[in-house]
Computed example of a mutant assay.
Amino acid sequence: MVSVKVEDVWMTFGKVEALRGVNLEVAEGELVTLLGPSGCGKTTLLRVISGLYRPTRGRVYFDSEDVTEKNPWERNVGLVFQDYALWPHLKVYDNIAYGLRLRKIPKDEIDERVHRVASLLGIEDLLDRYPHQLSGGQQQRVALARAVVINPSVLLLDEPLSNLDAKIRINVRTEIRKLQKELKITSIYVTHDQEEALVISDRIAVMNKGFIEQVGSPLDIYYRPRTLFVADFVGQVNIVKGKVAEVAPDTGELVVESEIGELHVSADEKASKGEEVYLAFRPENVEILRAPRGGSAGLLEGRVDSVQFLGSLLRVDVEVGGKRIRAEIHNPARAGLFSPGEKVYLRVDPGNIRVLKG
């Protein structure tokens, strides 16, 4: 196992700055996901780490060794691509064994390693087939086996599941996570799928316009976003503008006059009276009531705009002060359905509201 360190990396293609001063550290045996929209620099950063690109500026380290000028095979990285990149004229066994043969590994050891990794991924019965005889999920398992059979120092995966349908994608991502933990391979995983990133990662690096906005655990990224971009990109969120009306001197709790009404906030971020802020809160943290209860502090009055019944989940959009606020109710059979036009009241616990600066 090795650690990976990216230090002040810039990557320029002509006039386009694909990466702008990126810094990232990945611990031994950790799986870190690069998450962000198309064109944010995720794949470019992965290619710099792999050695496929030389950065315009900055350095890449594996442990304490500077590998910036080394080729991919000199870094001993395993690569898994979006399009699988399997050799169509080679059987599955030979596709998996390809990297071992290039390294001139003895035949008996090749056979043992190919069968071991095929067993781990449940593809032993596919070894005598050609890629065109496999499903997409099976091809992806073969690509993963080929990458890990060389015992890579670092495993790099670039949107590996994007060509699979939803059900197979869930199964394969579970297998990838299980394999990564079992083999304890330091791994960097690129995706634009937020759910995938939340499920598979030890930590997530959210990227935007060539730099990293925030690095943190899935819980941190989801519940404690540090920027408006991270809050808006990861999951469903309500964001409202406001101005700080009061700051409690003892607790630091804020009273914010927002565009939907007065909200009480237990702020992690310090704010001053009169300061303009943004408030972010998740739909599942919005309590929706048919009648006021528990006092009027922080209670918002609105009317139901639309209702989406999703079986175990009910999404209710409520118009409050001319702005649409989304609430989500799990197990809606217990709460009952709401109707468009119905008058309702909303409450958000102060501890579930995140204060963000513009």
Score class of each variant (00 low, 15 high):
Y53K: 11
L24P: 06
G58V: 01
D349W: 03
R324G: 02
L219D: 13
A18N: 12
P37H: 07
S3L: 06
A327K: 11
D305G: 06
V148L: 05
D8P: 05
P292M: 00
D8Q: 15
V215A: 08
D128F: 11
E195M: 08
L157V: 08
E196S: 11
I168K: 07
S339R: 15
E28L: 05
V149P: 13
L52E: 13
K107C: 03
V304Y: 00
I168M: 15
F338K: 00
K178P: 04
V316S: 00
P218I: 09
E175G: 12
E69Y: 07
K42I: 00
Y53W: 05
D83R: 15
L299R: 14
R20T: 10
L79G: 11
L35N: 14
A333V: 07
N95T: 01
E259C: 07
G137Y: 02
L161C: 06
D94A: 11
G294H: 09
R315S: 08
I185K: 12
V234E: 09
H264I: 09
D202W: 05
I150A: 02
Q214D: 07
F309S: 12
I221D: 11
H89A: 01
L313K: 14
V255E: 13
L156W: 07
V92G: 14
R103C: 01
F62E: 04
P283E: 04
Q133N: 10
F211V: 03
I49Q: 09
T191D: 10
T43P: 14
R141T: 02
R146P: 10
A205C: 05
P292I: 00
G242P: 04
E69G: 15
A166I: 09
L314D: 10
S3R: 10
F13V: 12
K15W: 04
P152E: 00
L198R: 03
C40W: 03
N285R: 13
E65M: 12
